[in-house]
């Protein structure tokens, strides 16, 4: 039974990775055609594409590990809110452009540290995905950090909006570093790091960029949780899924 328990934990871990990139990828894609300038529109659409591409790898492997014949598409389109394992931050509505870019930076910074560790995963399938994703993540974080600095250290208006964005999003950051028995099983198997062990490197990067952006990092340590464990999502995830899963809900089993 030990083997089965480990596979269950691995499945959960892969869902968390895949659902984070899927839900954020979908959120970012909502900007398509609406961004402040054309270059930003293209950049956001490309970022969303990368994230959804990474999702195909993570959820594809999750389906393989689960062994019930579910594909990445099945997992993305045929589950309801309670089965998603993404952190709450990625399902929040986009807000204004500044808030979207702040969230992107807070996520990219985590993603960069995380895939950096996963490249050394004892599970080669995971190491391979991380190696592929790391190159894209490097581009993402460079751009989102630049934008956070540009807007934070920009006009009075853009500065105020970016400070409001970090104040709003900060209570959602902590969940990325929570650990539970799934993480403990991943650590024990040499597959993935303890999420808490990423925090120091993360904080160093975030503090450096936010200080360059002349923004204050909130000191409140409270954080929301319930997304990565599936205990309770925000009301926003269900609304997002009605749009993302519309086709499969309206025409079950449709293919193209």
């Amino acid at each position: 039974m030990a083997g089965k328990t480990n596979d269950d934990a691995l499945f959960q871990f892969l869902l968390r990775m895949g659902d984070n990139s899927l839900i954020l990828g979908h959120r970012v894609s909502e900007w398509c055609g609406l961004s402040p300038v054309l270059e930003e529109d293209i950049a956001l659409a490309n970022t969303a594409l990368d994230l959804i591409g990474q999702t195909q790898f993570w959820l594809g492997l999750a389906g393989e590990v689960e062994g019930k014949g579910r594909t990445a598409d099945d997992l993305a389109f045929l589950r309801d809110a309670w089965d998603f394992r993404n952190v709450l931050m990625v399902e929040l509505p986009n807000g204004d452009f500044g808030q979207t870019m702040m969230r992107q930076f807070l996520y990219d910074a985590w993603s960069q540290v995380m895939v950096g560790r996963l490249i050394k995963s004892g599970d080669k399938r995971i190491a391979d995905i991380a190696e592929k994703a790391s190159k894209e993540v490097a581009y993402h974080v460079e751009r989102s950090a630049d934008t956070v600095v540009g807007l934070g250290d920009g006009s009075e208006e853009s500065h105020a909006r970016m400070q409001a964005a970090i104040d709003y999003l900060w209570p959602y950051v902590g969940e990325m570093f929570d650990g539970d028995e799934v993480d403990a099983a991943m650590v024990a198997a040499g597959i993935a790091p303890d999420p808490a062990s990423l925090r120091e490197e993360y904080d160093a990067l975030v503090n450096k960029v936010l200080s360059e952006a002349t923004l204050k990092v909130p000191t409140d340590v409270f954080h929301h949780k319930g997304g990565r464990t599936g205990y309770m999502h925000t009301e926003h995830l269900g609304h997002l899924l009605t749009s993302m899963q519309w086709l499969q809900r309206a025409y079950p089993g449709a293919t193209w």
């Binding site: 270059e39 930003e40 293209i42 950049a43 490309n46 970022t47 594409l49 990368d50 581009y139 460079e142 751009r143």
Partner: peptide
């Protein structure tokens, strides 16, 4: 450089 992202994922403007 105008933008790190271009008309396809592999290109910058």
């Amino acid at each position: 450089r105008t933008s790190q992202f271009g008309s396809t994922p592999c290109k910058a403007l």
